[in-house]
Design a protein around this nucleic acid. Sequence first.
DNA 1: TGTAATGCTTCCACTAACTGGAAGGTCAAG
DNA 2: CTTGACCTTCCAGTTAGTGGAAGCATTACA
Lengths: 128, 128
Amino acid sequence: MNIGAVSKAAELPTKTVRYYADIGLVVPSGRSQNGYRVYDEAEVRKLVFVRRARSFGFSVDECRELLGLYQDDGRSSRDVKKITLQRIAEIEQKMAELQSLHSELTHLANSCLGDGRPNCPILSGLSV
Amino acid sequence: MNIGAVSKAAELPTKTVRYYADIGLVVPSGRSQNGYRVYDEAEVRKLVFVRRARSFGFSVDECRELLGLYQDDGRSSRDVKKITLQRIAEIEQKMAELQSLHSELTHLANSCLGDGRPNCPILSGLSV
DNA sequence: TGTAATGCTTCCACTAACTGGAAGGTCAAG
DNA sequence: CTTGACCTTCCAGTTAGTGGAAGCATTACA
């Protein structure tokens, strides 16, 4: 498979696939005579894996770590679970922050008339 | 006030204050003979405003826009409310994403034994 | 068979919002 | 007088890509 087909199959932009190759995250299985990157099914699966993990908030470096575990038959599920639980904790933290942000902003927006007049509680609220 | 005092007053790192000066977001009111940036209360208020707005998820460019409104006595609260409501909608969107992420990851973590064996549903789940 | 349109390559530069560090000038205290 | 804190500029790096240019390769179509 050439990069275009891979890009379609993994649902990632070609630029991103090339970038992942550059940083050694998912490298093509080889190159054809004309220099084109050649991928096979295994790489496509890894790319899908990375796309999903990224969408789950795993950083590229964590993806690298996870891919390592993914490929290592001797890995323990304990390692994987540890990373995942950390991520869950971070998500909960993030959600709490967003929650307080949301209520503050909602409060400000509610107290604002939103008319053509300059008097605006949102700005006063921000500048406290 | 020199940058150190401003930094303390506005609760922002000096690096950040300098950065904001560089990009023209909050510029010092002047320079002293020795070349030190000199700020007065108005700038400190703006910096506090920016810090809070940033913590609310407004981008630096949005802060610039808000600062413009903030300083413009002829502004309408409608403009400010519009930006704020957009931001609230984005936060809700983000929270929904985090929520689904959280339940998916929790599900995966729960189905993982977390022992020393290689069999790990988290990885299989990610690679679907 | 010619040519035009994709598709692929590399490389360089840019994004956001800082942060770290080096090299050097200034100032107050002991 | 020297030490240390504070200030300056400039350069580079961070994350995770994205945009674009210049230049081969392949394919589609008239």
